[in-house]
Simulated scan of single mutants.
Amino acid sequence: MSIRHGLLALLSNGPRYGYQLRVEFETSTGATWPLNIGQVYTTLSRMERDGLVEPGGADDQGRAVYTITEAGRGELERWFSTPVDQSDRPRDELAIKLAMAIAAGDADLAAVVQTQRAATMRALQDLTRAKRTAAKEGLAQRLVLDSMIFKAEAEQRWLDHCEAVLKEKNT
């Protein structure tokens, strides 16, 4: 997902000013993707240049607000109707780390796996606590946290598999 599409989604609900977009973006993503306010204004500027948003004057407190254009709505609709391709996701740094540990030849693979297992378990516990406190915050936060929990659980299962393969190799 790009910041651009996230901001367009928020603007589809009505005019917003930059700081408001930043807060709503972070809230909607369960605070898992913090934004710098400069990123928000740079993205808005580019979207204005591309005809996706336009300045909408100022609110009652004098803050410049932006509105989504028809072209912006079209871009948002295209984004929502396009599935996320596996190749569009960032690389899996943990898989690469283990592959490089194997390539290095002298790394303690079991220790690498155990270190990651402990870190993933702590993250899973933190996410579970966050989900309990965010339950009343809204559906968007819950779904983001659920996704993160499922990914952490899947990582734990993959680490179990790695351990089994390492044991098999060493026997």
Rank of each mutant, 00 (worst) to 15 (best):
S2V: 09
I3F: 03
I3A: 09
H5T: 01
H5R: 05
N13L: 10
G14Q: 03
P15F: 03
Y17K: 05
Y19E: 06
Q20P: 05
E24R: 11
E26H: 00
S28Q: 02
S28E: 04
T29S: 01
A31C: 15
W33A: 15
W33D: 12
P34H: 03
P34K: 07
L35E: 06
L35D: 01
G38H: 15
Y41L: 08
T43W: 14
T43F: 13
M47Q: 02
E48V: 14
R49H: 08
G57I: 09
G57W: 14
A58T: 15
A58F: 14
A58M: 11
Q61H: 13
R63M: 09
V65T: 15
T67P: 07
T67Y: 10
T69H: 08
T69Y: 02
E70Y: 09
A71L: 07
E75I: 10
L76D: 00
L76E: 02
E77R: 02
E77K: 05
R78T: 09
S81Y: 04
D88E: 06
R91I: 13
D92A: 11
A95C: 02
M100W: 06
M100D: 15
A104D: 10
A104C: 07
A107T: 06
A107Y: 10
L109R: 04
V112A: 13
V113L: 12
T115E: 15
A119K: 00
M121S: 13
R122T: 14
A123K: 08
Q125P: 04
D126F: 12
L127G: 01
T128A: 08
R132G: 08
A134W: 06
K136T: 10
E137P: 03
D146V: 11
F150P: 01
F150M: 12
K151A: 14
K151C: 02
A152H: 10
E153F: 13
Q156G: 12
Q156L: 15
Q156D: 14
L159N: 01
C162M: 13
E163F: 01
E163Y: 03
E163K: 06
A164H: 06
A164Q: 10
V165A: 12
L166V: 07
K167G: 14
N170R: 07
